[in-house]
């Protein structure tokens, strides 16, 4: 079997895994790892059994690796749990921020309205303060989207 044929078989296998996984940097990272693993394992076997047909050896390598479905299932199982927990945590955080913002707007408006003997209308004050809160919310979200995300460990180089 020619090197070209081996490469084509590996590429087809990688494409099958890619189709099972979401389009994300993590997927690309995983595919890179798997490709290196296949190459290392195949080289090892070709050195150990130089007379064997490389296509047979490659088939063994891919069997040991597992099916694309098995690999994707493992990836999904491990990624899903933290993502769900994170989503629930963010939801709770969002509701809490909303409640605090409304509470602060109402209390501040009541205070200002009382201190000025109703010269500042309470309802108008609530609306203005809530508008400020919403604007602040959007500006903060925009700032966060502009800042770089740090997700690697201190010694990570990849």
């Amino acid at each position: 079997m020619e090197e070209e044929d081996l490469k084509r078989t590996i590429d087809e296998f990688m494409d099958r895994i890619r189709r099972e996984l979401p389009d994300s940097p993590e997927t690309e990272d995983l595919l890179e790892d798997l490709y290196t693993h296949i190459r290392d394992s195949l080289n090892d076997r070709m050195e150990a059994w130089p007379d064997e047909d490389p296509s047979v050896l490659l088939r063994e390598v891919l069997e040991d690796l597992g099916t694309p479905e098995e690999i994707a299932a493992e990836f999904g199982q491990l990624e899903l749990a933290p993502a769900q927990e994170e989503g629930a945590f963010r939801g709770r955080q969002l509701v809490l921020r909303l409640v605090v913002a409304v509470l602060v707007a109402v209390l501040a408006s009541a205070l200002v309205s009382t201190m000025t003997n109703n010269r500042v209308d309470f309802v108008q004050a609530v609306v203005v303060l809530l508008a400020f809160a919403v604007a602040e919310w959007f500006i903060r979200a925009w700032q966060l989207s502009q800042s770089p995300t740090v997700c690697a460990g201190p010694g990570d180089r990849l």
Binding site: L30, T36, L65, I71, F75, Q77, E79, P82, G153, R157
Partner: peptide, 27 residues
């Protein structure tokens, strides 16, 4: 199944239990 190791390695890396560095390979 050897392929199922890599999602585990990714998870352990994400949890900051493992670090990764690149190494040149001759092959």
């Amino acid at each position: 199944k050897e392929g199922t190791l890599y999602p585990i390695l990714h998870r352990l890396k994400k949890e900051r239990l493992l670090n990764v560095r690149a190494e040149r390979s001759d092959t």
